[in-house]
Simulated scan of single mutants.
Amino acid sequence: MNKAIAFVLGVSFMWPVAYAQELSSIAKYPKADKNENRNVIWLEKIDHEENYKVEIIATKQGMTDCNTRSYHTDLKKKDLKGWGYDYFVVGKADQVISTLMGCLDNKKTLADIPVVLPAGESIQRYNSRLPIVVYAPKDIQIKYKIWKADKIVPAVISNE
């Protein structure tokens, strides 16, 4: 039984390494600047990719209390010249926006604070053939969420 558990754990830890390709095998993406990270999102090949979307999510660690907090920044889509591929650049997120409730316990904790990105650029089509490459400042963590359309519902026609 221990061998079976070790095998399952070994396979689950090896999967991301085996799945991820070298980015240089796809195209010559620029290296990250010293104050930023290059984040690469490799998507698994699935059936009916047209029914899926990928949302790029950004967070930044900071101290928070009972108030709701967020940062806002831009997400620019850039063209990888000569290749026809895109990549994204997240702007700096220095100004925190917060509600101003009085917190009774005045307790502060370290938490991931959302960095709000423009919806028009943060949601991308699902494409397992090309990675999504996102350059972000080192203090911003990039994550992603997969969205699936379960069914397509027709609109109601009203010619009144």
Rank of each mutant, 00 (worst) to 15 (best):
I132F: 07
K60P: 08
Y144V: 01
Y52K: 11
R129Q: 14
F7N: 11
V153F: 07
Y52M: 09
A6D: 15
Y144N: 10
A155D: 02
H48A: 08
L130M: 04
V8G: 06
Q21V: 05
N2E: 13
N37K: 12
E121S: 12
T99L: 11
W15L: 15
I157R: 11
M63T: 02
V89E: 04
E121K: 10
F7T: 14
D79T: 15
A149E: 03
Y85A: 05
V11P: 09
N37M: 06
P118W: 09
E55D: 04
D33M: 00
Y52W: 03
M63V: 03
S98T: 15
W83P: 00
H72R: 14
G82H: 14
V11S: 13
L43Q: 03
A4N: 14
Y71M: 05
I140M: 02
R69C: 03
D105P: 00
L43M: 08
Q124R: 14
G82D: 09
K76A: 10
P114Y: 04
K78C: 04
M101W: 11
A20G: 07
L23V: 09
I57Y: 04
K34F: 06
V153C: 04
E55K: 14
P118V: 06
I41L: 14
L104Q: 10
A136P: 01
E22K: 09
K76E: 12
T64H: 02
T99W: 12
K138V: 06
Y85G: 03
M14H: 11
A4Y: 15
P137F: 01
A6M: 15
N159P: 01
A93M: 03
Y52R: 14
F13C: 14
I123P: 06
M14P: 06
V90F: 00
K143F: 02
Y29E: 03
K78A: 06
L80H: 10
T59R: 09
H48D: 09
K45F: 01
W15C: 12
I41M: 08
